[in-house]
């Protein structure tokens, strides 16, 4: 490892911009490590809690890895789009890992009374709580059927980008991003509700 992660990320982004396809594959582990460290630091602050702020984390990771200057408007967006694409994947992975671990801890206990079979049939998605493991499954379904909607959700939700930022990153109009986001959200909500009822 010749350089520090910051230099590596910058270099990788410029290679991606120059068309080196395999460079993107090398970006993910770096971003993943950075986000994981940041997330862990946050978790430690809140005790091993369950709340994360992906937007804040991803942006902090961006500044740490690329520097505040990288965020300036005159910089090319291509590099950033790749970064956030990687960040979204990394963040999703982290969230799913956390959720799986929490779930396994919960089921492992000898006093556990929360049996899966006992769940009420009408369980729905609580307003601010997302079953990350189920969402991960449903997202795979979305990806298979509509890659663009999947991309939009990845960037909007897991990387915390705004409509405008997402439109720049995906080279779509903001209106399209908004429409795709609205449909995908309703669809995901429906799928999660179905998952919850065991359908």
């Amino acid at each position: 490892m010749a350089q520090n992660p910051t230099e590596q990320v910058t270099l990788l982004l410029s290679r991606i911009a120059a068309g080196e396809a395999h460079a993107a594959a090398n970006l993910l582990p770096l971003v993943y490590d950075e986000l994981r460290n940041l997330a862990a630091a946050r978790m430690a602050k809140e005790q091993p809690g369950l709340t994360l702020e992906p937007t804040a984390l991803v942006h902090e990771a961006y500044i740490r890895l690329i520097g505040a200057e990288g965020g300036r408007a005159d910089q090319k967006w291509d590099g950033r789009a790749h970064f956030f694409g990687a960040a979204a994947i990394a963040m999703r992975r982290i969230l799913v890992e956390r959720a799986r671990r929490a779930a396994s801890l919960k089921r492992g206990g000898h006093m556990s009374r929360v049996e899966l079979a006992d769940e009420p049939a009408n369980a729905t998605v609580a307003p601010d709580e997302v079953d990350m493991v189920a969402l991960d499954r449903v997202m795979e379904g979305l990806k298979a059927q509509d890659a663009r909607k999947h991309e939009v959700v990845m960037l909007r939700y897991f990387a915390g980008l705004t409509i405008e930022e997402t439109s720049l990153a995906l080279d779509l109009s903001p209106a399209t991003v908004k429409n795709e986001w609205t449909i995908a959200r309703a669809w995901l909500h429906r799928e999660l509700a179905r998952e919850g009822s065991g359908v």
């Binding site: 369950l50 709340t51 937007t55 919960k106 307003p127």
Partner: peptide
Amino acid sequence: SLLAHHDGAGVRFLDTNKIRLMAAHG
């Protein structure tokens, strides 16, 4: 069905600022 789920989702569903992992089922 989509409209119902859009309405039912509420503003905090897939809120990009705070992701709270579901603590327990039901």
